[in-house]
């Protein structure tokens, strides 16, 4: 499945300062659909190059990270259970506090 992943608000620093990643992710063996939970573990093992604790906590993202599936908060689509589809755009953004 082709997906576009974007990292912002400083999270890109965890993946070699690259903000946009066009990736191919397959559903786990024996499963037809790909969920956000599957994607997070894929991202952790394939894209995060340092300090994984700055991206994840347990099997979800760490506090202070917003996840958007096609420009919509993942809270509105079922969080970890959100089912992904071909060409979805998933944004991971760390909240900023500076001013």
């Amino acid at each position: 499945m082709h997906l576009t992943l974007e990292f912002g608000g400083g999270l890109e620093l965890l993946c070699q300062s690259v903000k946009i990643h066009n990736v191919e992710v397959d559903s786990p063996a024996g499963d037809e659909k790909l969920t956000m939970k599957d994607l997070l573990s894929w991202v952790r093992s394939n894209l995060i190059k340092e300090r994984p604790e700055m991206f994840m906590k347990g099997d979800s993202v760490r506090p202070g990270v917003l996840v958007l599936v096609n420009d919509c908060d993942w809270e509105l689509s079922g969080q970890l259970d959100t089912t992904l589809e071909e060409k979805d755009v998933i944004v991971f953004i760390s909240t900023l506090h500076g001013g």
């Binding site: 400083g10 700055m54 760490r62 506090p63 202070g64 909240t95 506090h97 500076g98």
Partner: peptide, 15 residues
Amino acid sequence: CLFPTPPPSDACQRC
């Protein structure tokens, strides 16, 4: 509502 739990302090960068 958006951020019920604060992020780890290491994740808070300053200008």
